[in-house]
Simulated assay, not measured.
Amino acid sequence: MGNHKKGLLKRYICMAVGFVLSLSLFAGCSKGSNQESETSLILGFSQIGSESAWRIGNTKDIEEQAEKYGINLMFENANQKQENQIAAIRRFIAYKVDVIAFSPIVEDGWDNVLTEAKDAGIPVILVDRDISTEKEGLTTCLIGADFYREGVMAGEYLIRKADALGLDHVNIVEITGTENSTPMRQRQAGFADAIANDSRMNILESIDGDFLKSRGAECMRYLLDEYGDDIDVIYSHNDEMTLGALPEIEKAGYAPGKDIIIISIDGGQEAIDVLKEGKINCVVECTPKLGKEVMETAIKLKAGEEVNEVIHPVEQVFSDEQDTSKIPERGY
């Protein structure tokens, strides 16, 4: 074959290869555009902090479910400060996210920033906790546990326990969660209502433990100094405070779970392990795995669909009334 023909052949081959490559690139770009449209939902999420195993498990589930559903997650940790959450929500608004979700550290003080979100046309999902407001339409729904029901289940367990032990008088100390937070108010109210008609029950004192392990220990030291042998029951609003209180009880010479009845809420692995050891009598479950519901709700909201105003997961009670060895791993 002559040099001229060889040159033409090489040119045609190069053109053909180039054409194929162009098609491949175009197809690749088209595929990328479809993926972008499928994952174009942007969710801004403001987390309270990382104060407990429950909260860490909740954050992990939110992140994992966002990835699973192909949702772009803008995540901010408020480190237990309301002003940080308000600032984060304003950043989400400025960024023009599609949906905002947050776990409010307290119930009050959200009207201004949520009105800004409403005016920007951005729907807001409450996760884990509720807010207190007289304005309508600031949020679309609440996804989280029924805290009042958790308090009721704790109180109902205590009545059964008192019956089983034949107690004719029961002195209770209560270590509550963060003052004015939804779980604090509702867990306290549910417990109080559950025991209200039982004349044996007497709450000696309720003290703010702020949902923190360190505060649980501090509160327990104070309560033991103040009431000592008079304490029959400790009702703690979360596992972290309970786990902080237990060593203080032992240091004071009492056997938790035997000398003093211990009731906790959350159901994290560490608390369940201690339940199995007999140092906690009852743990009311409050699951942190709310990510699936958050993502599915965000997708519906972006599509303009109606959503339920309240979405509660199904929860249970773990206690010394059952074979605790059969309780499965908790995953948080």
Rank of each mutant, 00 (worst) to 15 (best):
P247C: 10
S206N: 10
V152G: 05
A78V: 08
M184T: 11
N197M: 13
E63L: 10
C282S: 03
H169S: 15
I249C: 00
I125M: 02
K258V: 12
Q35M: 14
T297Q: 13
N180W: 03
K135A: 03
Q269H: 12
F147V: 05
A78P: 10
L8Y: 03
M241E: 12
G268N: 14
N202D: 10
S40G: 04
I86K: 13
A303S: 12
K279T: 13
S37C: 09
T133Q: 01
R221G: 11
R129T: 06
H237G: 08
F318W: 14
A192S: 13
N79M: 09
A271Y: 11
L167H: 04
G109C: 02
N202H: 13
V274S: 08
P328N: 00
K60T: 09
E277L: 12
I125S: 02
G209N: 08
L243C: 08
V283H: 06
E321D: 01
I262V: 15
D163E: 15
D146S: 01
F318L: 02
A154L: 05
K292D: 15
C14A: 13
N77S: 01
A16Y: 05
P104L: 00
E321F: 01
T176S: 07
M1N: 10
I125N: 03
K60H: 06
K326C: 09
L114T: 01
F191A: 02
I143P: 01
A194L: 06
V314F: 12
S319V: 03
G2K: 02
S40C: 14
E76Q: 14
L21D: 11
I231N: 02
L167K: 14
T140W: 10
K300R: 14
K326H: 07
L165G: 07
A192Y: 12
V317G: 10
E315V: 15
D198L: 11
Y95T: 15
E277V: 06
E277R: 09
L290R: 11
I105Y: 03
G49V: 05
A192H: 10
A66M: 00
C282A: 04
M201R: 12
A145F: 10
D259H: 11
C282T: 03
K276F: 08
G121C: 06
G70P: 10
S46N: 00
R55Q: 15
S33G: 04
P256Y: 01
E240K: 12
S22P: 03
T324Y: 10
A255E: 15
D239V: 03
L25R: 03
N34C: 08
I280R: 12
A303C: 04
E306D: 14
K6M: 13
D119P: 03
E83L: 09
M153G: 04
G228V: 12
G228S: 13
G331L: 04
S40V: 04
Y157E: 00
L8D: 13
I122W: 00
P313R: 03
I48P: 05
N79W: 06
E285D: 09
L290F: 12
N72K: 15
I261N: 02
N197E: 14
A196Q: 07
E38Y: 06
T115W: 06
P104I: 00
